[in-house]
Design a protein around this nucleic acid. Structure first.
Length: 138
DNA sequence: GCCAACGTTGGC
DNA sequence: GCCAACGTTGGC
């Protein structure tokens, strides 16, 4: 199983909305690198849900329930989406500042490439952040 | 194929 | 609101 991080501005689509919707199609991604990360996603993979701009914190864990598939509205054939569902909210949201301050997380893609909206997360990083979030390695 | 100009994201 | 760090576009 692989681990990921999905960014969303809460004003555009928040964790609360994901919970209320019980899941959503993660579409609208245009960046090539982010799309490549999405192509590598498989059902069962887990992803942190990160609020950008407002909050700047990881607020929950989501699960990939359907791997990458083409966006039917995209003529270029390059765009696509995955389906996600909420798993559990963070007991304690983990802020960007906290992650930056943790020496174990200096290599995190989120910190190295601030503009990448779909980031890979290593198993070690996943464990560390879960612990910070008050989630016992979920 | 290079690179300047421009647009976008997202932290501060 | 500003700006750094990208990505994209288009002229050459």
């Amino acid at each position: 199983m692989a681990y990921w991080l999905l960014k969303s501005e809460p004003s555009a689509y928040s964790w609360d909305r994901l919970v209320a919707d019980r899941g959503t199609n993660w579409d609208g991604v245009r960046n090539a690198q982010a799309l490549n990360n999405m192509r590598a996603m498989k059902p069962g993979d887990r992803a942190f849900f990160y609020h950008s701009n407002e909050g700047k914190d990881i607020v929950g864990v989501a699960e990939i329930v359907r791997g990458f598939y083409a966006d039917p509205n995209d003529k270029s054939g390059k765009l696509g989406m995955v389906d996600v569902r909420p798993v559990i909210a963070a007991v304690k949201p983990v802020t960007l500042a906290q992650m930056k301050a943790n020496p174990e997380l200096t290599g995190m893609a989120l910190l190295r490439q601030s503009r990448l909206s779909v980031c890979p997360v290593t198993e070690r990083e996943w464990q560390v952040v879960c612990e910070m979030a008050g989630l016992d390695n979920r």
